[in-house]
């Protein structure tokens, strides 16, 4: 798999790079805040949201905003951020621009765990627990298999993960075949990705906070890791421990995202590339930038998913792929000229 040249045709150049990074991050922050406010304001129950700001307004609207829209927007923001940071880390760790958060099989493991819980007649937190269990099991298995003999070269890890992922894929199909019709919808959730289930945002936000807090200070070392283990080691990076840490953080991010919202495609793969297209390839910008952009994009997508077919709700995972693919291809075309 070779690297296409397109990704670096950046618009931002020159000595003002530092300033440009700050500008990009500020814009992304504004975007994320804007989308977040929009997600609180827009919905089936129209009007009266502005009144809430002045202490007045309809108590029913307040209830809807605080108890339905706020947790959902918070969840979407965190899941989008987790997926994007997991994408950045997986791409760096595997030195492969095609890597996404699920490439090492975490989503398959989570889906299997969750559907198995459904099959056993469990519900609610138990199902989410099943997803966590599946994801963590996958994380441990891939780690153990890939690390056992040759000490973790990138391609071995990738291959191990991809094979484990396809194994889980077969497992998911088999379980879906067994699932009785009345529970099929709940099972499909884990494959399509959906934010309507209302997982506790506290968990996702905590994981996101921990991952970003550990990753950001290491970003300069990660820049080197992306150029190769040997080169990074020659320039003073303790490659072995760093790779293990990044594997754990990336997996944890992906696991938290999947357990909360199923496997939402595309966000984790594309967000880092969108930022690279903007010239933000430095991980010191890429890490916080993709959290903001990914969080914002997913919140926006979820807003659309619950608005376009209202009062029906579409799983957001369908929308991210439906919109994400053409938008990314368009950007790609534009930038390669």
């Amino acid at each position: 798999m070779t690297t296409p040249d397109f990704m670096g045709q950046s618009a931002l150049r020159g000595g003002e790079r530092g300033l440009a990074s700050v500008a990009v991050l500020s814009l992304l922050l504004l975007f994320a805040i804007g989308v977040f406010v929009l997600a609180l304001a827009v919905g089936g129950l129209r009007g009266g949201v502005v009144d809430l700001l002045w202490g007045g307004g309809d108590p029913l609207v307040l209830k809807v905003v605080l108890e339905l829209r706020l947790p959902r927007a918070l969840g979407a923001m965190a899941v989008g951020g987790l997926l994007s940071v997991a994408g950045v880390l997986m791409q760096t760790l595997l030195r492969n621009p095609l890597a996404d958060p699920y490439i090492l099989g975490l989503s398959g493991g989570a889906a299997c765990g969750a559907i198995l819980a459904l099959l056993m007649g469990l519900s609610g937190l138990w199902v989410e627990g099943g997803a966590w269990l599946g994801a963590l099991l996958t994380m441990a298995v891939v780690f153990w298999l890939a690390g056992s003999s040759t000490g973790w070269d990138g391609s071995r890890l990738l291959l191990t993960g991809v094979v484990v992922a396809s194994g889980w894929g077969a497992g998911v199909s088999f379980l879906l075949y067994l699932v009785p019709d009345d529970r099929l919808r709940g099972a499909l959730f884990w494959i399509m990705g959906d934010l309507s289930r209302g997982s506790n945002p506290l968990v996702t936000w905590s994981v996101l906070g921990v991952v970003v807090a550990i990753t950001w200070p290491l970003a300069r070392s990660l820049n080197l890791l992306a150029t190769g283990s040997m080169r990074a080691a020659a320039l003073g990076v303790a490659v072995g421990p760093l790779r293990i840490l990044i594997y754990l953080l990336a997996s944890l991010s992906a696991a938290a995202a999947v357990a909360a919202a199923g496997s939402i495609g595309f966000v984790g793969l594309v967000t880092p590339h969108l930022l690279r297209l903007l010239g933000c390839g430095d991980l010191r910008v890429l890490v916080p930038g993709s959290v903001l952009l990914g969080g914002g994009l997913l919140t926006l997508a979820d807003l659309l998913a619950r608005s376009v077919v209202a009062p029906q709700q579409m799983p957001v995972g369908i929308l991210t792929a439906m919109l994400g693919a053409p938008v990314f291809l368009w950007l790609l075309q534009r930038s390669s000229r």
């Binding site: 990704m7 030195r95 150029t227 080169r231 320039l235 690279r276 390839g281």
Partner: peptide, 29 residues
């Protein structure tokens, strides 16, 4: 590794570039 890298440097036979980087960024690394 950090202490080693301050007194010993190596020019590898080959390098791979997976992600877009500018010349200055690479040298600055």
């Amino acid at each position: 590794r950090r202490v080693v890298a301050r007194s010993l440097g190596i020019l590898f036979q080959e390098y791979a570039y997976h992600f877009p980087l500018t010349v200055l960024e690479t040298v600055l690394a």
